[in-house]
Amino acid sequence: MHEKDQMIDIIKLITDIKHGKLSSSYDIAARTEQLLENLISHGKWNTAQELMNLIKLRLKKIVDLLPQEATTNNIMRHILKIIRDEYDAGFKSKAEGQQTLHHLVTADSDTDSTDYSKPLPSLKLALLDHLAEYKVELEASGDNIASQASEHIHSNEVILTVGKSNTVKKFLKFAAKTRKYHVIVVESAPDYQGHVMAASLAKSNIQTIVIPDSAVFAMMSRVNKVIIGTYTVMANGGLRAASGVNSVALAAKHYSVPVMVLVHMYKLSPIHACAYEQDTFNIFASPADVLPYSSGPVLNKVHIYNPIFDYVPPELVTLFITHQGGNAASYVYRLLSELYHPDDYYL
């Protein structure tokens, strides 16, 4: 019964995400982290294996109900990795103290066979400590990314961005403290989040121009850098970004403009997905934004698609900027292996 209560927790999180109560990815990340922290401190588990099963149950639930939501999954996977690490560390420190290089090299070979069912009383405390650390990392991630702004944005440059992203906003505002530069915001129809972004930037005294999506190619020749955010980074370094970003990236490629993607670590996903499978990859929002309901009978005769995501292939991305610094798309696999345990990639 206790089990069920905990599952209600995750269902609440899912409905909140689904109904747009948690809009920014940071909110979702923080909620997920909170949920797992609760699970670890109050949940009914004795061994690492049991705890991991509890988390995996939730992970499965989310994958089933919100196949397009990556942030929660990634955080859960990362915490699974933390549990494995803490468990290993707990036993190793008891047994033989310091790890040798030899151990590190040979350790990977028998990961599958590691037995997580031995009780380790110190695990709970160690995990909670580690999670507190992780929480701080999450909170500071945005600021850490923003603090690299002055390395990438120089005086009198023209920066192009698409739609609204809190991370990009922070990044641009940080650069504006020391530099004078121009920002072109693509309005990103049909939800026009670009307008909100531009208004916010203009408040911080950044020279801002809003352009329609159709004008991207024409403006691109004047742009020095494209800086965007994304929903998810796929395992191959491709992006699941807001719809319209792919055409921006292609235009940038044509004019050899570097495309920089600001990502929190929790946006890196071990999943491969591509644009060919639109059904699993994409979500289609209400057609009302494209063709209002008041258009009447014609609605029965046309198919209206209003996709939310766009797939951007890795070769169009110049640089990922995480809180640890810049990385090329080809390096994403390495970041992934740092973040997640290979056993948790697929469930």
Binding site: K18, G20, L65, I283, A285, S286, A288, H303, I304
Partner: peptide, 22 residues
């Protein structure tokens, strides 16, 4: 089925190809 009630959307696949329209 046509997603007018987004974010409430059917959690099933929508076929087009082999089954004809919609």
């Amino acid at each position: 089925a046509n997603h007018w009630f987004y974010p409430i959307i059917p959690d099933v696949k929508k076929y087009s190809g082999c089954f004809g329209r919609d």
